[in-house]
């Protein structure tokens, strides 16, 4: 489509009425509709999509800990409730194929979980112990992820083995 000459006869170059619809066609990119699928939506693992979000005032689908104000519950009760919910989620994830399908959580997410310590039920001792274990677990997970990263490509694996052998030979 040739670009019209700006100095040509203005009557002949004036765009017909139907062309105004194309003038800013780049802005008329079809946006995904509300009711469409959630493809392309960024959802933090293992989060829920917006279509599954509940209203801020509805607690029907939330964990049992949310149904009664936390202040009225003892710390141990709320901690136990959180543990029960997480155990149920873990069991469901083990059964529905998430282990095969879903990506492992990032180290940042694991760190956030340790820092929030939602499973501690606001008991300082439980929080301290849990976070201590959480950081230990985070370090182990980081080492494991590094091993997985190396094992995922043959060249990485070969190079790592070579370097390890070299270090061992030089050290002896």
């Amino acid at each position: 489509m040739p670009i019209p000459d700006p100095w040509a006869d203005p009557d002949s170059t004036r765009a017909p009425a139907h062309e105004h619809a194309h003038a800013h066609a780049r802005e008329a990119v079809p946006q995904p509709t509300e009711s469409a699928d959630t493809a392309g939506e960024v959802v933090p693992f293992p989060g829920i999509t917006t279509s599954q979000d509940t209203d801020s005032d509805s607690t029907g689908q939330m964990a049992p800990t949310e149904q009664v104000p936390l202040a009225k519950r003892s710390g141990w009760n709320s901690a136990a409730a959180v543990w029960a919910v997480e155990a149920r989620e873990t069991a469901a994830a083990a059964m529905d194929g998430s282990v095969w399908r879903a990506r492992p959580p990032s180290l940042r997410d694991l760190h956030a979980r340790v820092q929030r310590a939602e499973w501690a039920g606001d008991i300082p001792a439980l929080r301290a112990v849990g976070q201590w274990f959480g950081y230990l677990s985070l370090a182990i997970t980081a080492i494991g992820y590094a091993l997985l990263w190396i094992a995922r490509r043959p060249f990485r694996l070969v190079l790592t083995v070579l370097i390890t052998v070299l270090v061992v030979v030089l050290a002896i």
Partner: peptide, 25 residues
């Protein structure tokens, strides 16, 4: 927990590019 189905990378790139230029315009 099912993972989210994504659009092809080509479509996402084109959309991001168009959004960038539309924003500048």
């Amino acid at each position: 927990m099912a993972t989210t189905r994504r659009e092809p990378q080509r479509v996402r790139r084109a959309r991001r590019r168009a959004a960038y230029h539309a924003d500048r315009a």
